[in-house]
Structures are given as C-alpha cells and as structure tokens.
C-alpha cells in the first residue's frame, strides 16, 4: 500500500506552491487520490517523475470508491467475484454459485487470469446507504484487492 511519504521523497520539497497545493506533502496526498496530476509540478526531473508514476499507477483505476487491484498479485481465484454482495444480488444462479458468468451487471470479473472491476460505482461502499463492505478485501489470499 503506497503512502504519500513514498512520493514525497521524489518531490523538490521546496513548498513553492506552484502546483496549487500549500506543501509538497499535500501535493503527494492529492497525487494518490487522483485529485492532482504529476504535470502540475514544474520542477520534476524525468527520472523522479517515472518513480512517482510507478507508485501512483495502481491507484489510477481507483475511481470513486477507491478500489485498487494490484494485477501482479492477483491469482484469478475468484473469491472476490463470488463473495461480492452486488455480484450475488445480480446473478444469484451464476456467479453466486461459483460459476463464471457473462452477466453484464457484475462489478468484479476474472478476465485473462486476473480480476477486473467495471461499473465499480455500483459497489455498496458508494451506493446509498453507503456500507463499509470489505468482503473482497478480507477474502483475498494475496491481498491484491484493497481500499487503501
């Protein structure tokens, strides 16, 4: 799991405010939450930029619910797919019984060996009444899926 300090060490640490944030640390936090872009800092060297991009990349797909899938850790076991309450509600005779399914309303699906999210804004954490559901996280054997 990335923390802002990992990004901070590659920033100029001058707190010049030209990116629009008060401090470099604040900029680091906003980079992770996708609220700021690396290009906003005019003083980043190419190699440092690449380091920051590597740290931020898994969070790019986080979208509104903040779901992050570490593709390189995922085994395609399908635990998250079969346990997800949204999936189960949408496909009670398919995915809920452990079978692979073509149902279009599934928010987590295994494709080419790893899990992919789609329409993740239908996740229980985002749809009212917002529930702190973490079933996919708890049941992942490799901790490849998380809400950091």
């Amino acid at each position: 799991m990335a923390n802002p300090f990992q990004i901070y060490q590659f920033l100029p640490k001058t707190n010049c405010k030209e990116c629009g944030e008060k401090t470099c640390m604040a900029f680091a936090v906003k980079l992770i939450s996708q609220e700021a872009k690396i290009e906003q800092c005019p003083y980043l060297e190419e190699d440092k930029k690449k380091e920051i991009e590597t740290i931020v990349k898994p969070f790019e797909g986080a979208e509104k619910t903040g779901l992050v899938i570490h593709d390189e850790l995922c085994t395609g076991c399908g635990n998250c797919v079969v346990a997800c309450p949204v999936n189960v509600a949408n496909d009670p005779h398919g995915v809920a019984t452990g079978r692979g399914s073509k149902n279009e309303k599934l928010i987590l699906q295994v494709k080419d060996g790893t899990v992919h999210a789609c329409d993740i804004e239908n996740c229980r954490r985002f749809v009212k009444p917002r529930v702190l559901c973490d079933v996919c996280v708890v049941l992942c054997p490799k901790k490849a899926i998380e809400f950091p």
């Binding site: 995922c74 085994t75 395609g76 076991c77 399908g78 079978r99 692979g100 399914s101 073509k102 699906q109 295994v110 494709k111 080419d112 060996g113 790893t114």
Partner: peptide
Amino acid sequence: IAHACRKGA
C-alpha cells in the same frame, strides 16, 4: 480467456 484463474489462463 474468461473465468479461468491465472494458471489456467
């Protein structure tokens, strides 16, 4: 390749 795990895929 849909549904197969990493090994199968």
